[in-house]
Design a binder for these strands. Structure first.
Lengths: 231, 231
DNA sequence: AAAATAGTGTCTATGAGACACTATAGT
DNA sequence: ACTATAGTGTCTCATAGACACTATTTT
């Protein structure tokens, strides 16, 4: 059991949100080398006495101001040359954040929210692209485009059996809003009738009796999620 | 970006097999403290210039003699006190090994193959137990019972959409053998007719035209898997 | 012949998709 | 009235489970 030299252990967090039928990610412009001028994920090194989960929470909160969100371990990245300065093993996490909460927390950090473009279908996987408001592709740092891609792949798969769509919405939402979230994540249209049936029969939604307001059409009923889970 | 002290990074491999309708795991008796006399997973520290995947392959091969098997990253474990000697982050992998290959490689290592008892149903998750031949429960080292449990949970989930059952069989096998593998992993009976239809319509099996031998009943047709994947 | 499993055919239950229809909000 | 979406009812199609039956091997 000899250790040789020790790599550094970092935790990077891919925080995703959905807005206007698009996927968005929280990123940080790099002001120092390496990858200066490129965009990276919020990340940091683990402390000696904190767990991986705690490190992910701490890093997300201090870098973005976000707290009390869905946060789950994603994958560990350890290619030898992924950081040109030193050997760094990164344990990646992903977070799902509702858009309104994200806007409120934005004042805190040096982070920006950029649009994700997913150049593959289904769960094929691979790197994704960051796009600026004008549609220009933004350069990414390290292997963070792969990490973001794996986060998208993960939530696409998870949507088939877990109710993670709720994590991207406020506490009360209509079935149409929830369907829009699912369609955005999967990047395909879903059948309305089937979606309603599936959601209502899952037992995870409870009707509030209230309806949405300020829409220029018949308002839908507002539902709540039975339990709002965090790590 | 200051690193503080560096934790050690280890890779542990949960190598699983199926035989006689039971799950088995490759474990190593610990001859030194901590956890002397208990049973642990094959593991080791990562080298400075090797990737995580390569480290998992190396550790599996040197400790167990196993090569060319299905090997995939599972989860990273980083609780602060999981190793009483030092801060160790362990990136866990799981491997699926066909029983005959496992018996052949056994001569090589100091490893043993022990039966797994899974005390939870479905994909509830949690630690599993190691059992000796006489049914006695064996004590485990570190958090390795949790790692093994997560490996079982993972393959149970994966069985719903991926053909990993093949990895636990020799190149040619009958549908009954494959169904037995699935039933052992899931710990429940499956419908024969439906299982046949699902497997045959998946397009992943090709009939060989040959039949099994040395069985005391009508022999089933032997099938092969379209591609034998490794990492 | 008996035992055991292989393999096929068919019926039913379930769930998804398609489609049509009615209901209700804002403009 | 018009538009847009909410919400319901029903038909069809695909798939899983159940069951019955025939086929084929060893003992």
């Amino acid at each position: 059991m000899e250790a040789g030299h020790k790599p550094l252990v970092a935790v990077d967090v891919a925080a995703l949100s959905v807005w206007e039928r698009r996927l968005w990610a929280v990123v940080v412009p790099r002001r120092a080398e390496p990858f200066r001028g490129r965009w990276g994920l919020p990340g940091g090194f683990i402390r000696m006495h904190e767990s991986l989960d705690r490190a992910a929470e701490r890093i997300l909160t201090t870098e973005t101001g976000l707290g009390d969100v869905f946060l789950e371990q994603l994958y560990s990245f350890g290619a030898a040359g992924r950081d040109p300065r030193a050997r760094v093993i990164s344990v990646a996490y992903y977070a799902l954040v509702d858009w309104n909460q994200l806007q409120k927390s934005k004042a805190m950090g040096q982070t920006e929210v950029m649009r994700l473009h997913v150049p593959w279908a289904g769960e094929a996987g691979g790197a994704v692209e960051l796009r600026a408001a004008d549609g220009a592709r933004l350069p990414t740092a390290f292997d963070h485009a792969e990490i973001l891609g794996m986060a998208v792949k993960r939530i696409r798969g998870k949507l088939n059996y877990a109710p993670i769509g709720f994590q991207l919405l406020q506490k009360k939402f209509t079935l149409r809003q929830l369907q829009e979230i699912h369609e955005t994540i999967l990047n395909r249209k879903l059948n309305k009738d089937s979606f309603r049936r599936r959601m209502l029969s899952s037992g995870l939604l409870k009707a509030t009796g209230r309806r949405e307001a300020d829409v220029d059409h018949r308002p839908g009923e507002l539902y709540g999620f039975v339990r709002r889970s965090a790590i």
